[in-house]
Design a protein around this nucleic acid. Structure first.
Lengths: 193, 193
DNA sequence: CTGTACACGTGATCC
DNA sequence: TGGATCACGTGTACA
């Protein structure tokens, strides 16, 4: 195909020499533009991006699609409750805020509540560097997708969030578990309330 | 760029004339081969093929991926159908929200602006798993302390934050730098705006 | 003859 | 310095 090579000097048609090229030229430019745009779109919806290469983008997209297909199959055939709670173990991996630093002055407020499919979370405690990051990280590790969130860090750290369960943790994770995990994440020891 | 025009026939570097061209030439050939192979693979796993165009293939792949994502979400939510009745009532109050907006492709929005001592950040882009976490993590890494923040992840990912500079050694950061960093963090390539 | 779409070789650019 | 990747303009085949 690419090796149609042979034959050297046909050149039957030399009808250009003038005026013609600009048409085909800009058409080709538009085509390249469209192709690159599509490529960018593809890259923008694929979460795992190893490199910015065109080939890598396509490769990652392919892998991602296979991943999605497999996930769908397991979701379909996996009746239920096959999930482990192993995710909880990863919560502690993040930045270990030392409990010693726990400020005892004012009783912090940690509330977790289920409403329909949503999980309402309300936190108000002493501000601390990295607290927002560790809290968000913990929520993610617990399989809670933040849908809405209002944060204020002026005096105290205040966070009100509405989350949806990313995975099938609803039946396993109790509100109390979430609350205590967040409590520890914020650097407090013992149990909350 | 394309119209760098000037310079007509310089040819400062003519170090080729022999031996060299075949190197770059075949490298380019291999690159094209890989790219086309990837493209064929992508086409082979996408069931819906409208046309054999390169652009169409990418477009179909994108649509298919979105379709898969949506299917996964519906599958997950179907696991717990018990709360749906209440949700229906809830949704009923907000009927004005367009039901089918899946195919709208709008450009993401990344804005960073300095106001006095504060740095205002506004993001609106396609939702992606882990996006909130990576964004917060990036802000922290840039030395920006979130003072106030409103987040919404219902359809797209939307974040409006007001930050203060945490450290002094980062004060050299321009708004543009912050913007581009956030842009890349969100998984986009190239430059924003 | 008019577009559209692809492969090709080459110069430029970035580690 | 090279090796790898990209954008570009062009030739050409197919509708």
């Amino acid at each position: 195909m690419a090796i149609s090579a042979n034959v050297g000097e046909k050149k039957n048609k030399v009808r250009k020499l003038e005026g013609q090229p600009s048409k085909n030229l800009m058409a080709e430019r538009r085509r390249r533009k469209r192709l690159n745009d599509r490529l960018s779109m593809l890259r923008s919806i694929v979460p795992k991006i190893s490199k910015m290469d065109r080939t890598s983008i396509l490769g990652d997209a392919i892998d991602y699609m296979k991943e999605l297909l497999e996930k769908i199959h397991t979701l379909r055939e996996d009746d239920n409750v096959k999930d482990e709670i192993k995710d909880i173990k990863f919560v502690g991996n993040f930045k270990e805020l030392k409990p010693n630093e726990a400020l005892v002055k004012k009783p912090p407020k940690f509330e977790v509540e289920r409403r329909n499919v949503d999980t309402r979370i309300e936190i108000c405690c002493a501000a601390k560097p990295g607290l927002l990051l560790s809290t968000v990280s913990t929520l993610e590790a617990l399989g809670l997708d933040v849908q809405q969130c209002v944060i204020s860090c002026f005096s105290d750290f205040s966070l009100q969030a509405s989350c949806s369960e990313a995975r099938e943790h609803r039946t396993i994770l109790s509100c109390e578990d979430v609350k205590q995990t967040l409590f520890k994440t914020a650097g407090y020891g013992g149990r909350c309330l």
